[in-house]
Design a protein around this nucleic acid. Sequence first.
DNA 1: CATGAATGAGGCTTCATTCAT
DNA 2: TATGAATGAAGCCTCATTCAT
Lengths: 210, 210, 210, 210
Amino acid sequence: MSIPRPARTKEEVVKEFRTTEILEAARRVIGELGYGEASMERIAQKAGISKGTIYLYFENKEALFARAIEHGFEQLMEKTRAATRRARGHTAKVSEVARSAVEYSLDYLSFYRVLAERPDLGPAGRSAASDRLRANVDDYVQYVADLLERGTRAGEFRGINPHQAARILLAGVRTIIDEQIREGKHPLVQEEVDTLLDLFLNGAAAGGRS
Amino acid sequence: MSIPRPARTKEEVVKEFRTTEILEAARRVIGELGYGEASMERIAQKAGISKGTIYLYFENKEALFARAIEHGFEQLMEKTRAATRRARGHTAKVSEVARSAVEYSLDYLSFYRVLAERPDLGPAGRSAASDRLRANVDDYVQYVADLLERGTRAGEFRGINPHQAARILLAGVRTIIDEQIREGKHPLVQEEVDTLLDLFLNGAAAGGRS
Amino acid sequence: MSIPRPARTKEEVVKEFRTTEILEAARRVIGELGYGEASMERIAQKAGISKGTIYLYFENKEALFARAIEHGFEQLMEKTRAATRRARGHTAKVSEVARSAVEYSLDYLSFYRVLAERPDLGPAGRSAASDRLRANVDDYVQYVADLLERGTRAGEFRGINPHQAARILLAGVRTIIDEQIREGKHPLVQEEVDTLLDLFLNGAAAGGRS
Amino acid sequence: MSIPRPARTKEEVVKEFRTTEILEAARRVIGELGYGEASMERIAQKAGISKGTIYLYFENKEALFARAIEHGFEQLMEKTRAATRRARGHTAKVSEVARSAVEYSLDYLSFYRVLAERPDLGPAGRSAASDRLRANVDDYVQYVADLLERGTRAGEFRGINPHQAARILLAGVRTIIDEQIREGKHPLVQEEVDTLLDLFLNGAAAGGRS
DNA sequence: CATGAATGAGGCTTCATTCAT
DNA sequence: TATGAATGAAGCCTCATTCAT
């Protein structure tokens, strides 16, 4: 029984490779310079290609940026799903979400910037691209909210608004990434994640529930 | 008892008035259009002056933006201090911090944008202006951290890292502002602030401390 | 009795001067390089200003080009009207039309190019600007057609389709301009105009009417 | 009597076939989009080959365009010669010239565009290609001028400058093509050609010769 | 021969900044 | 001081041309 030839020509493979290469470059440049300062020229330089080549793979700047972010979200979601699948118990799963986000964002700084800059806050809903971007962020938040909701039904969390809680948790994750960026990567990440989760789970108040 | 005439010439008063006027205009334009889209032309229009005049009061765009943000922080700090002074008990003080930040940011969207966009996260210390900006954010976080620390000594909070806790709390505040912006201002702000504080103080875990 | 102050500020005069200056430069560059090769950069150079300045007076390239042509037509119409007004008899008036067009086009080569290149032939009726351009050409042809029609009613011309005759006459004018451009301006223009009119009026056939 | 096998290899035949194929594609694209908008990419698409292939047959864009026009002229000359050969009398021959030009130009709009845009009118003799182009136009005009001259010697035309008359006649032809393009092809072409020839032969003046 | 991905010069446009008035 | 016309660097994008496959 012969293995069927993969349904991809060599050209398609090359094309996908280039596409990914550009997306990675875009993410890195956005990460370094911020959304506003990232230029096509610099992205091309970073990718080791010429300006014009980018336009063979992406319609324009906005499309490239939207895809770069989307690509980042896809990878983050993949990592996150894998990590949560391995974890037993919803509390552990939530912990894995936080750890994945931090780890991933340190690798791909640009991804972090999306969480931080929220380009969707510009003149509301300008383009289809920014709509899709917003949808990506929403999906990610929803994923965490679902986790919290299932955990609540399983008796692990108390009855809090899962959406708001998810957003707050992810905002907490952001503070860790902030700190990592400011101070430079160091080995205390896990500790900070633990503190965040401790705070998220048990609160800051002394003694019992207020 | 007469108040001594301030040792300021009329020119200085006018100068300060103009400065403030421009700063407010800058904050409003940044708020409406975002950091990247805010142009000197529009700021001048909003301030009712001409482009060139701005350069009599500010060195360049970056300096103007940095001062606009700084100005925002000063106002926020003032409001926050007043609010916390009135409150009794550190838990109540923390609550006032959150409420002040949300209220202020809804009034001055631009201020929120700084928290969100964090232009100072670029290549560390790109410019003197961005250094001062960072310092402002730090001061604000420090203020909240001090509050938490004193609260801890007063037995109201358990022994958590006050800096990290402050950052996480403020990140939570941001999520509320996000939501307000996305859904449009509505009267549930107080409710969301309460939920945030409940979560911050008591955590998400069911039952007692984990 | 005091002369009323002209209803124009100095700024308006300067503005109009610059506008005209740019329009002339545009017409000259279009004349030298053709429609397709004329760039904003070269027009700016020719006008002795910088690229950016053009955009203070014209929205974009298309608007500039459309106005440049329109401006040319306005001048041509003015000259033509003045010349025909002076002439007695419709035959003489037609002669003046031809002479005006040739003279004017040699002064403003770019204007000729419009007649020659017919940018309105591109992907039909693409823009408002090209619509207005077409309208200008039509107006000019109509003016000549009216002249021919009145001349016919006055018994000076026989009953030919005035529109087609007008177009043909103007096409004949073009050939003279062509020749002038190719050979360089020389003093035979009047002779060529006379030959054109002789042919237009009396035809090429030997003997009487065929 | 056998026709001797042409001394051409198969390769040469293929080469000529490709060349012609590209020239036709170029003419059609120029006809549809205009001189400025015609890109190598679209010509390649229309010819069913790839961009790079064009460069195996033509040095560059200008050379291709020049050859495309030249090719058009060759075809027009061929058609015109055939048509005039059939006609009896010089007046009839001239009539056939006009009809051929109109018919041909409606079939190959691009050809007309050259007559209209006259890229060779730029700074005299910019390139070898534009020189050859000019020569083509001249040849065509010369052919018509010769016809008129012979007609004059045969007593059919009166003694007018044959060159200028030829240019004027051809310019008149252009106006018909213009009109056809603007209004869309319709069956009145012959009528317009007749009117043109009537005007060309008999003139516009009422009564006898002026 | 043929391809089409890659290049990079060049075109249009914006906008922070300067400077003569 | 205040103005705003002018500047020109820099950004996005197109397309003629090249070249490795």
